Amino acid sequence: QVATSTVRILGMTCQSCVKSIEDRISNLKGIISMKVSLEQGSATVKYVPSVVCLQQVCHQIGDMGFEASIAE
């Protein structure tokens, strides 16, 4: 089973930030795809909930120095 959710990301300033986040999160087990939008300050994450949760994704992004939260 696959889920798609949006994560809000604060602190991104350039495409390099976007690429860094996409590269790191895409390597997590259970992540199918991730598309980060600098303009919208968010990311669309396609993932397998039984393998990885959005809290883990937000935590990983937080470790990179950005502020991440699950969009309502």
Rank of each mutant, 00 (worst) to 15 (best):
Q60A: 15
D23N: 13
P49N: 05
K46C: 15
S16G: 08
I25D: 00
S5A: 14
E22K: 05
E39K: 08
Q1T: 09
A3R: 10
R24Q: 10
C58V: 14
Q60Y: 14
I32D: 00
R8W: 15
E67M: 12
C17S: 04
S50W: 08
K19E: 11
Q55E: 10
I21V: 05
S26Q: 09
M12Q: 01
A3V: 13
S69H: 12
V18Q: 05
T13R: 15
V51S: 04
A43R: 03
P49C: 06
I9C: 06
G62W: 15
E67H: 12
V48Y: 15
Q1Y: 08
K29S: 10
E39F: 12
G11E: 01
V45Q: 02
S37V: 06
C53E: 09
V36Q: 00
V51N: 02
Q60T: 14
M64N: 02
A43Y: 04
Q60L: 15
P49W: 08
F66E: 02
R24C: 06
Y47L: 02
D63S: 12
V52R: 01
C58P: 04
E67Y: 14
Q1V: 09
R8G: 06
E39T: 11
S5W: 07
M12V: 03
G11S: 03
G30R: 05
I70R: 04
V57R: 04
V57A: 01
C17H: 15
R8H: 09
E39Y: 09
N27V: 12
D63G: 08
S20R: 15
Q55H: 13
S50F: 08
V52H: 01
A68R: 04
E67L: 11
C53L: 09
A3F: 15
K19A: 08
K46A: 13
R8I: 10
T6P: 03
I9V: 06
M12L: 06
S37L: 06
E67K: 14
C53S: 14
E22Y: 08
C58I: 15
G41C: 10
M12G: 00
S5I: 08
S5H: 12
H59A: 13
V57H: 03
I21D: 01
I61A: 02
S20N: 12
I32N: 00
G30P: 03
C53Q: 10
V48P: 00
K19R: 14
Q1E: 15
V2R: 02
P49A: 08
D63Q: 15
M34A: 07
S26I: 10
S5L: 07
Q55N: 08
Y47E: 00
H59S: 14
V45C: 05
Q55G: 08
T6Y: 15
G41P: 01
S69Q: 10
C17L: 05
S33A: 09
G11Q: 03
K19N: 10
S33K: 09
S16F: 08
F66T: 02
E67D: 10
I25F: 10
R24H: 10
V48L: 12
I70P: 09
S16Y: 06
I32G: 00
Q56Y: 15
S16L: 11
V36K: 00
Y47R: 00
I9W: 04
F66R: 03
T6V: 13
R8F: 14
T4V: 12
K35Q: 09
M64T: 02
I70K: 03
Q60K: 11
A43T: 02
S37M: 07
G62R: 15
T44L: 13
G30V: 08
M64D: 02
L28N: 02
F66Q: 02
I25V: 08
I25N: 01
D63F: 12
Q40D: 10
V51L: 13
S5Y: 06
E72P: 10
C58Y: 09
A71T: 10
S37H: 12
E39I: 10
Q15K: 11
L38T: 01
K35G: 03
E39Q: 11
V48A: 08
Y47D: 00
V2K: 03
S69W: 14
I25W: 03
A68Y: 05
T44H: 08
S16M: 13
Q56V: 10
G41R: 15
L54N: 01
C53T: 15
V36S: 00
H59E: 14
T4W: 13
I70F: 09
S5E: 08
V52T: 06
T6L: 13
S16Q: 12
E22R: 04
A43E: 03
E22M: 08
C14P: 01
G41H: 13
G41Q: 14
I61V: 04
K35N: 07
L28E: 03
S20K: 15
Q40A: 12
I61R: 03
G30Q: 03
V2W: 15
I31Q: 00
T6H: 10
Q56L: 10
A43W: 05
T44Q: 12
S37F: 11
P49I: 07
Q40M: 12
C17K: 03
K29Q: 10
Q15G: 11
I21L: 05
V2I: 10
A68K: 02
V2A: 07
A71F: 11
N27I: 12
I32F: 05
S20E: 14
L54S: 01
K46I: 15
A3L: 14
P49M: 06
Y47S: 00
G30I: 09
G41D: 06
L38H: 02
V2E: 12
I31V: 13
V57C: 04
K19C: 05
T44E: 12
I32H: 03
R8V: 09
G62E: 14
L10H: 09
Q56S: 09
T6D: 05
M64W: 04
L38Q: 03
R24T: 09
M64Q: 01
L28C: 04
C14S: 07
T6M: 14
S42V: 10
V7W: 05
S26N: 12
V45A: 02
I9Y: 01
K29T: 10
S26A: 09
V18M: 05
S33D: 08
G65P: 01
M64K: 02
G11K: 05
K19P: 01
I31H: 01
I25Y: 03
S69N: 07
V45I: 11
E72R: 07
V51P: 00
E22W: 07
E22G: 03
E39G: 07
E72I: 10
S50H: 08
L54M: 10
V52W: 04
M34K: 00
K46S: 14
Q1H: 12
V52Y: 03
I32W: 05
T13M: 11
C17Q: 15
S26T: 11
I9L: 03
S42T: 13
F66A: 02
V7P: 00
I61Y: 04
C53R: 12
V18H: 02
D63P: 03
G65L: 05
Q40W: 13
K35E: 07
S33Y: 11
P49H: 07
R24V: 09
P49V: 07
Q55A: 11
M34W: 05
C53A: 09
Q60C: 05
N27F: 09
E22S: 05
G41Y: 07
R8Q: 08
G11A: 03
I9T: 00
V7E: 02
Q1W: 13
I25L: 07
K35F: 08
S20C: 06
N27R: 14
S16T: 14
V51C: 05
I9M: 00
L54R: 01
E72Q: 10
E72W: 10
C14I: 05
R8T: 08
S50L: 08
S33I: 05
M34Y: 04
I9F: 04
A68E: 02
H59L: 15
C58S: 09
T44V: 13
Q1A: 06
I9H: 01
L38I: 06
V2G: 05
M12C: 05
Y47Q: 01
S5C: 15
I21F: 03
S5G: 15
T44I: 14
T44W: 13
Q40C: 13
V51M: 14
